[in-house]
């Protein structure tokens, strides 16, 4: 026994989310990060966009019943974490965290176009909890961003995989907000690259 090495406790195993994550738990969660509440003037700074997506399984079917979490910085690339609590570019009306349970495997996130710090391209982190699997994490990038070509995460992937993380622009909605669309393929052909946040 080495008395200097801390005695690390073994981690509780992740497990599947099962098919029945209770929808009421998501009642206070948001999938619109632009407006704090439809009845309030509080609106996040920056350019509203919409990211639509579908979860696809190995058979090409929609992955129903998954819990999805989204995480992104504000329009100036600042994540709302304790490390940035006093940062002058914090947007008080923007938290950057969204969650939903998707009954049918589709999602639509209305948000602010994320800014990018340093060498990163604008991106949104996506976490998937679902029946059959433990947590999956990846990041969604936006078509048309020059910084995509040099983003350290995108460029760490073999070239053919990079486009699978880039949501395609599909035009504007009736509010004039740019809409992006992405298929997140959990398994099989055109499988989305997922990342290892335990061993990285």
């Amino acid at each position: 026994m080495n008395s200097i090495t801390p005695n690390k406790r073994p981690a509780t195993n992740e497990d599947t989310c099962g098919p029945y994550f209770p929808d009421p738990f998501c009642d206070a969660d948001r999938m619109d990060l632009v407006e704090v509440h439809p009845g309030l003037v509080a609106t996040a700074r920056g350019t509203p966009i919409v990211i639509e997506g579908r979860l696809i399984d190995i058979d090409g079917n929609l992955g129903n019943g998954a819990v999805l979490e989204f995480w992104q910085p504000n329009d100036r690339g600042i994540y709302r974490t304790p490390a940035h609590a006093d940062h002058p570019d914090i947007d008080p009306w923007f938290d950057g965290y969204a969650r939903c349970r998707s009954k049918d495997g589709k999602f639509s996130l209305r948000t602010i176009k994320p800014g990018a710090l340093a060498d990163r391209a604008p991106n949104v982190t996506l976490t998937i909890f679902s029946d059959g699997i433990s947590r999956l994490v990846t990041q969604i990038f936006l078509e048309g961003e020059a910084a995509n070509a040099s983003d350290p995460l995108l460029t760490s992937l073999p070239e053919p995989l990079r486009s699978r993380l880039i949501a395609k622009s599909t035009g504007a909605n009736d509010r004039g907000e740019q809409v992006f669309s992405i298929d997140v393929v959990m398994a099989g052909n055109n499988e989305t690259p997922f990342f290892d946040d335990l061993e990285s």
Partner: peptide, 16 residues
């Protein structure tokens, strides 16, 4: 069955 349908077949990528 759901694990067969939804488990990525490729190894996870390391995060830079």
């Amino acid at each position: 069955n759901t694990s067969r349908e939804r488990t990525p077949r490729q190894p996870l990528q390391l995060i830079p």
